[in-house]
Amino acid sequence: MINKVVHSTKEAVAGIFDGATILISGFGEAGSPIELIHALIDKGSKDLTVISNNAGSGNVGLAALIENRQVKKIICSFPRTAISFVFPEMYRSGEIELELVPQGTLAERIRAAGAGIPAFYTPASVNTPLADEKETRIFKGKTYVMEHALNADFSLVKCHAADKYGNLIYNKTARNFGPIMCMAAKTTIVQARKIVEVGQIDPECVITPGIFVKRIVEVSNPADESVLVAEKRRYPWN
């Protein structure tokens, strides 16, 4: 019998080992699986490589994971926002490594990983420092740079609703990296605002088919990162 539902965020992040590569969904706060990240902080796995579009805000969620010295390297497109200070400070002091990737290249590297494509060519970043030392090739007179797939051991993803098969739907622009991150990890772990009965999600409307998902946990009232940041909250909770 297939039932991917687990009953706590602690159970959901079980097995995340030191040195793992982890995809974390979200574009800023939209779609960021804060509760799963906090469970990973509780677990304490170290030397992680995190792939996420941003590098967190305030002292909660991804920023708190970094502040807790669990991340050795981050692969992202935009590691700063108006209210991000944890990553910038650690980056300047050399405590964390950064691989900066154009946002579309980041998305496609993740998608490629999930689709079994080891590398591809893109026009983005050609003639810029981000293409330095990368292989290039000319197709029909135009130069492209080769980029490698970004496979991961785990992905942590937030969605709106899931069923026990792992079929997912998302909410508005909180979808962002979720569907492709579900595809690109050996173990995809999802927090859903609600878990519904099988059959309740119209098959025509499924965004992530359940085959890409390993574990689902219901987090019915997920925290809003911007609210926590405005309240100067810190995880572990102050």
């Binding site: 497109s77 935009f78 700063r80 950064l98 154009p102 946002q103 893109t122 983005a124």
Partner: peptide, 21 residues
């Protein structure tokens, strides 16, 4: 996207993809 200042945290977002496509 960058002034090249080593004190700045580099960030690129989608700008390179936009101008390429």
């Amino acid at each position: 996207w960058s002034t090249g200042d080593p004190n700045d945290v580099p960030a690129v977002g989608g700008a390179m993809d936009l101008v390429a496509g």
